[in-house]
Design a protein around this nucleic acid. Structure first.
Length: 209
DNA sequence: CCCGTGATTTAT
DNA sequence: TAAATCACGGGG
């Protein structure tokens, strides 16, 4: 597993470009003296102040989502439903609060560690096939909020390809769990690798391959 | 299908 | 100060 990583110029683009570009790249996490890693297979784009599903909608800026206003390349981690820590990568420029939610990865390293952190997982495809599962398997919590993934050795993304996957290898759908977001609830801002078995179930309507 | 979960946000 | 909300997962 290389020391190579995606740099600031990769992240300082709009959320759709980064969400697509992250598919097929490797998320690496070092913590507690252990390494876990996996290939990103599912993402969602959150477009910023205009996007009713985004935490930054309408320019909302609080202690929780402060990281979203930083320049692209830092994490935004929040606790959801009182239980799950979800990992986002902030993208675009300072004060342009867009982010990409990492929803699923295909585990490549540290599967034993992941299994220990996710005792309920019964098979490899249960380890990281959803944003809350990924958070647990990768030891994500609020302490990891606002980490700079372009410089941190604790969390970064390793390039496995220098071009985005071709459009026909990517499936688009509406985002999961944002039914409250009116016209933004159905925008095609979720992206996953066609046919990959580590993609989250999400809404069965969009489980195409 | 249904529901726990608890920090954060928003309403009183 | 109190109530509502919520980028989910696991078990029927």
């Amino acid at each position: 597993m290389g020391v190579d990583r995606l740099g600031a110029s990769f992240y300082r683009r709009d959320a759709v470009a980064v969400a697509r570009g992250l598919l097929g790249q490797r998320l690496v996490r070092r913590s507690q003296g252990e390494v876990v890693a996996g290939i990103i297979v599912e993402t969602e784009a959150y477009l910023g102040t205009s996007d009713k599903a985004a935490h930054s909608f309408g320019g909302r800026r609080t202690a929780r989502n402060e990281s979203m206003y930083a320049a692209g390349g830092v994490t935004y981690v929040f606790l959801n439903y009182g239980i799950h820590y979800l990992l986002n990568i902030v993208v675009a420029g300072t004060n342009d609060p867009q982010a990409v939610l990492l929803r699923a990865v295909e585990p490549t390293h540290g599967l034993d560690t992941m299994q220990r952190r996710r005792p309920k997982a019964r098979q490899m495809t249960d380890l990281c096939s959803g944003p809350g599962k990924l958070g647990a398997a990768f030891d994500i919590d609020r302490r990891v909020d606002r980490i700079d993934v372009t410089t941190s050795d604790a969390l970064f993304i390793e390039p496995l390809r220098n071009r985005p996957l071709p459009a026909n290898a990517i499936v688009e759908s509406s985002r999961i769990g944002v039914d409250y977001a009116e016209e933004w609830a159905t925008a095609p801002l979720r992206f996953f690798i066609r046919g990959n078995i580590h993609v989250s179930r999400g809404d069965a309507r969009f489980r195409s391959r």
